[in-house]
Design a binder for these strands. Sequence first.
RNA 1: GCCAGAGUAGCUCAGUGGUAGAGCGCUCGUUUCAUAAGCGAGUUGUCAUGGGUUCGAUUCCCAUCUUUGGCACCA
Length: 476
Amino acid sequence: MKNIFISSSIPFVNASPHLGHVLELVQADTVARYHRLLGDNVFFVSGTDENSLKNVQSAEKAGENVSDFVYKNYINFFQLKDLLNLTYDDFIRTTEQRHFIGAQKLWKACAKDIYKKKYSGLYCVGCEEYYKEEELIDGMCPEHKTKPILVEEENYFFKLSKYQDKIKKIIETDEVKIIPQSRKNEILSFINSGLQDFCISRTNERAKGWGIDVPEDSSQKMWVWFDALSNYINALGYGSNDESKFNEFWNENKDKVHFIGKGINRFHSVYWLAMLLSAGISLPKTIFVHGYITVDGQKMSKSIGNVIDPYKLVEKYGCDAVRYFLLREIPALEDGDFTFDKFEKRYNSDLADGIGNLLSRTITMIDKKNINIDKEPEELFINKNKEIEEKVKEKFIYFNEALDEVWSLISFCDKYIEEKKPWAIDDANGNEIIFSNITYSLKNISQLLRPFLPETSKKIEEQIKILKPEPLFPRI
RNA sequence: GCCAGAGUAGCUCAGUGGUAGAGCGCUCGUUUCAUAAGCGAGUUGUCAUGGGUUCGAUUCCCAUCUUUGGCACCA
């Protein structure tokens, strides 16, 4: 039995969750469940990033108190757990006390690499953001069409440059493994372009008083990424009175996996590693970078109005149907596309007509003909099941391919039934073997599906036990 | 602009120096245990475009186009 730490990234709470957030959570959950089934000691954590200035701006726009606004959205994210049958062991909000303590401890642990520097830039008051000269249009803010003002500010910087060679080597040698390769290449080329120190604080004024104080300098707030990344270890009690979990699952443990979206790879694969190196804390083992979900080929965005609400989707189709679509139709490490048409085709052909129908026809015949299914399965079936089991294990992390293998076993069973025509057999003996083969496979399929579709897996087991057919997925 | 990846049947993708495959969809046939499901057969492609290397390229090389991503203090 080994310890495994698994994290999802922590999304901003400036809006409700969409299908893209759910993709990552379902992927991470599937892996967490898989390892628990293998007997590993899993700690799976998710959370919300609540200190960003974006949250403050969104709250203001909505005319709400920032804390209330953030809380409301936090609830929407947290409840995804029940919605999608997720199994995090902990959920950390970055406005929690434990996170503040941990973030500040990490800052202090990096103190030798932190220094103060004057920074000047073109600042748009409307956007509350700095712009680079080349981003301006005719010297004006592209958003507000006003002339930005030259602002000078003294901020804290982190000596990222110092870690360039070290990080490069760590990534090249897969000491920290970035999956897939293309994302690793991207990071390497970024590093090769030269790492510069980065700003890790902003003035209280610019942060609107929202965020975590820089230790021993309450005139500044920590830049949101510096605090946010530490959530992973803070959830394990880093900085608290009892750091035993932190030691057990992080510092003295190798198996640590971050699930992130492609947009935040750099923060994890470069900044985070540098911060940990600086603080003398051990590094994650794997960074698993997934893609984004488009809707009918377009980016999901509020302005287009094509944002898919996971709550509505689950309400309409059910939890496992949504989990199945995300894991089967969206390639694990690339972008994928959602449309209701694709969703329903997938649902009908794989879930209703595939596993659902196979179970249904099997149970009905066993029940009607009162067939004994306790016979030893034939070698053909034992071998076939073993073969699929191994393939699923091998391809597991490429969820779509692993599920494809499970479905090939379903198809194998359907063909076998067709060939044997058990409905035309009166002889109980012949049917006993046939259905022992099939139920043996169905039980196996149920086992294989446990991490992916936990509810469905349970239902299959139950139906075989009580022999009462109940559609797993009613056809749409 | 620079760098990297991708461009193969309606869709999602696999693949190979010797004139292409899977699943889904669709059409037809067939079975009846089943959620009008299952099974079988069939269907479609200038393998992005233009050159080059080669006896021969979709597969190698070059260019072009399209597309996706990265190009730091902005998730």
